[in-house]
Amino acid sequence: MSRKKGQEKIFEIKWKTDLPYRYSIGKLAVKFFEELKKNKKIYGSKCPKCGKVNFPPRAVCADCFVEMTLSDMVELPPKGTLEGFTVVNYPFVDPQTGGMRPFPYGYALLKLDGADTYTMHFVNETDYTKLKVGQRVEAVFKEEREGNMGDIPYFKVIKEEE
């Protein structure tokens, strides 16, 4: 909040946290990232009971409370559809780096073909007038992959013949 004119400067102690952490991603995510790194493939998880396909892969079906294992993982095509979109156009500190997140960037809720759940990711379009709900998109893979989400830096807008 901005201070009013004439108001005394408030004594502030400034600091920056820099906390390292280790996060256990689970065995399904291990397979997901292995397949992504080695074979440029995208895997989701399919509930053995109701057949709901989760992408990102989840270990438990939210509807049936059934556990999904490695054998329930299914390959999904790298194409999907925008369900919602925005263009982030405001400055903020990215807590992953401690620096400003570059903006503007396209940001979308998208659904991969064959998946029943959604995921949020970057989209390579910063003009919101060029995006629409239902827009087709395709995952872009990095050539030198490391086995993390950075291997799919963004989804690109595609045109498809009907």
Partner: peptide
């Protein structure tokens, strides 16, 4: 299975 991350956030404290 381990993802190594960091949380880096600037703060100021009105003491």
């Amino acid at each position: 299975k381990i993802y190594r991350g960091r949380i880096k956030v600037p703060y100021k404290h009105t003491a």
